[in-house]
């Protein structure tokens, strides 16, 4: 990957991916002659939070909860890696130079940190499928990312249409 070329950081999680988004993200990088860094965030805290909720309202016992948590974490990681592989293959097909990486933690903080480390010129993400009302009342990780990111954040919808471009 060239040090001089602009870098586009494509942020993924096991749930933050769609084929439409993948195509749009890579094509936009190709059109701008950018190198791409594909970053998968393993959100262990999410499966842990779900497990906590199940423990509280579902009264799932410790052992069962632990097994379920492990199953979920393994499944999410496998799915994320599969998306990463798909994207890397598609990037190679489009002739884009690509780096892949995997980090663990909270999505906005991790992506903002990686963007700083790799010197990304922009970040490309897609939103989770959530009702707008839920986003307004309970907050959004993409909104938080736009606040933390050192570079502009472009948001695509699941079909790959650019919906927002935020400059921090």
């Amino acid at each position: 990957m060239s040090e001089n070329r602009a870098k586009c950081l494509v942020a993924l999680t096991a749930f933050r991916f769609s084929p439409g988004f993948a195509t749009a993200a890579l094509e936009s990088a190709r059109d701008r002659s950018e190198d791409v860094v594909l970053c998968l965030v393993r959100e262990r805290a999410k499966s842990d939070a779900m497990a906590d909720r199940l423990a509280d309202s579902g009264f799932l016992a410790e052992r069962m909860l632990h097994d379920l948590q492990e199953t979920m974490a393994t499944e999410y990681r496998a799915r994320g890696l599969e998306y990463l592989r798909e994207l890397a293959e598609e990037a190679a097909r489009l002739g884009i130079r690509v780096d892949t990486m995997e980090v663990e933690g909270a999505f906005p903080e991790c992506i903002a940190q990686v963007a700083r480390e790799v010197g990304a010129g922009r970040i490309v993400v897609t939103r989770l499928e959530r009702p707008t009302l839920a986003r307004v009342f309970f907050g959004s990780e993409v909104d938080r990312l736009t606040k933390l990111a050192p570079c502009p954040v472009e948001v695509f919808d699941r079909r790959g249409a650019a919906v927002e471009a935020e400059r921090p």
């Binding site: 096991a14 749930f15 499966s47 779900m50 909720r53 199940l54 309202s57 579902g58 009264f59 799932l60 379920l68 979920m72 499944e75 999410y76 799915r79």
Partner: peptide, 10 residues
């Protein structure tokens, strides 16, 4: 909880 478990599959 059963719905939550099923939904967690994605």
């Amino acid at each position: 909880p059963p719905n939550a478990i099923a939904y967690s599959s994605g």
